[in-house]
C-alpha cells in the first residue's frame, strides 16, 4: 500500500504538486515504487517552458525508464540538483527531499484530490 499525502494535489501521470508559489512538483510514492530504484533523473532546466500533460524529462531505474510529465504549464524556477546528483532521493523520500522541480505556473492541467488519487492507485491518504 503506497502513501498519498493529504495536503497535495495529483496528476493522473503520478506527479504531486503543492500549493506554494512557485509550485513544487515531484512523483508520488506509488510512481517511485512502480519505477524501482531511480539511477538517472533528467529534469527540465531553469528557464525551460513546460506544458501540462507533456513530457519534460525522464527517470530511469535498473528495471525500466519512465517519461516525466509536467502537471502544469509554466516556466521552471528551480530543478532539484540534489536529486540529479543522488537520484535515490526519489525513492527514499518522494514527497520531501526527492522533489523534482518548481514552476511559475501559467495554467494547471487536470488535477486530482488526494482521495481521488488514492482511489486510482489503491493507496492510503496519510
Amino acid at each position: 500500500m503506497t502513501v498519498v499525502k493529504p495536503a497535495l494535489r495529483y496528476s493522473a501521470e503520478h506527479e504531486w504538486l503543492n500549493d506554494e508559489d512557485p509550485v513544487r512538483i515531484g512523483i508520488t510514492d506509488y510512481a517511485a515504487d512502480q519505477l524501482g530504484d531511480v539511477v538517472f533523473a533528467e529534469l527540465p532546466e531553469v528557464g525551460d517552458t513546460v506544458t501540462a500533460g507533456e513530457v519534460c524529462g525522464e527517470l530511469e531505474s535498473t528495471k525500466s525508464v519512465s517519461e516525466l510529465y509536467s502537471p502544469v504549464t509554466g516556466t521552471i524556477v528551480e530543478s532539484n540538483e540534489d536529486v540529479i546528483q543522488n537520484p535515490e532521493r526519489i525513492n527514499e523520500d518522494p514527497y520531501g527531499a526527492g522533489w523534482l522541480f518548481t514552476v511559475e505556473v501559467s495554467e494547471e492541467g487536470p488535477l486530482l484530490t488526494p482521495e481521488e488519487y488514492a482511489e486510482q492507485t489503491e493507496g492510503t491518504v496519510e
Partner: peptide, 9 residues
Amino acid sequence: KYSSEITEH
C-alpha cells in the same frame, strides 16, 4: 523485490 532492488543487488 522486497524493498530496493539495488540494495538487494
